[in-house]
Each structure stands twice: as C-alpha cells, then as structure tokens.
C-alpha cells in the first residue's frame, strides 16, 4: 500500500498490553492528537519482543520502529521489561552496522496512566523518523532482477 501519498512514513509500534497499550488508550480517551503514521502491534509484554521482529520490520520497509513497555519495576510479569531493556539496547546499537540509523528505532516506557507522555513520545518519534526520511526496503528479489525493473544496479555503484 502506498504510504498515503507520501504524507506518512511506515512506523511500527510494539506495545505491551498492560502499560503502554493502556497508555495509548488513555491518550485516545483524552483525545490527545497524534500523527497517524504509527501502527501498533499489541504483545503481552515487552519481554515478548524478539528484536528480530524489529529487524523483520526494517527488512520489509518500515521507516521506524517504536517499542514501549511498562516502566522498570512495574512489569506486569515482574521481569519482562528488564530482559527487554538489554535485548533492545543491544539491538539498537547493532543496527548501525546494518546501515540502519539507530534513531529509526527507539524503545521507552509508558505507563497506562501516562496518556500525555504517550502523545509526546509518538509525536517526537514520528518527527524524528520524518527527519531521517524513508528507508528503502531491502529488495525481495536478487539484485540482477531488481536492476532489470529499476534500471539501476547497486552492485555497480558499490
């Protein structure tokens, strides 16, 4: 699907059910205006988020990925966000070697009562991704085939 005539970028959110998804709901109930780019995937816990889901999103053409969970110490499952914090931090630092700007990925903590904070996070993150612009998806096909359809071959440029 074209990203709304170039007005939107593709931003994927992974939110834990108990805190951040609730926080996003709270923001909704309070009618806090937000940019429309973000699409939210609900998971039980930030600890459920395998960083490879994020990698997959980038491979498939996401321009930004936002993860949000319960604040440390508040995890509904006691420890999930502690594991998540380590995995996500490692992943954030890792992606620069892949050629993905680390700023395209952020993780944070928003509680169910923090509707305002959620609005702020979404707005700032969306702006941050727009500043970077779109990220070309990794081609689904071989480069030779891609060259036939697009007329440019990255292999020669590189």
């Amino acid at each position: 699907m074209p990203v709304l005539n170039g007005r939107e970028l593709r931003i994927v959110g992974f939110l834990c059910n108990w805190c951040s998804y609730g926080g996003a709901d709270t923001a909704g109930v309070a009618r806090f205006d937000q940019p429309t780019d973000l699409r939210v995937i609900r998971v039980p816990c930030s600890g459920r988020i395998d960083p490879l889901f994020i990698a997959k999103a980038f491979m498939n053409g996401a321009d930004g990925v936002l993860v949000s969970g319960c604040h440390p110490r508040d995890c509904h499952y006691a420890e999930g966000n502690y594991y998540a914090r380590r995995r996500l931090e490692v992943f954030k630092q890792f992606i620069s070697v892949l050629g993905i700007e680390p700023e395209r990925f952020e993780y944070t903590w928003v509680s169910a009562s923090e509707g305002q904070r959620w609005q702020e996070v979404v707005t700032k993150f969306t702006n941050q991704v727009h500043t970077l612009g779109p990220l070309a998806p990794i081609p689904e096909v071989a480069l030779s085939q891609l060259a036939q359809t697009t007329g440019t071959d990255i292999r020669e440029e590189a």
Binding site: S96, G99, I100, I138, P139, A142, S144, A158
Partner: peptide, 14 residues
C-alpha cells in the same frame, strides 16, 4: 555512511 553500509550488505548478500 549508512547508505553505503546498506548497499555493501545488499551486494554481499546478493
């Protein structure tokens, strides 16, 4: 730059 890195990996992975 980030784009060069990405292009590098694309050609390698290809």
């Amino acid at each position: 730059g980030f784009e060069e890195r990405r292009d590098f990996w694309m050609t390698e992975m290809d």
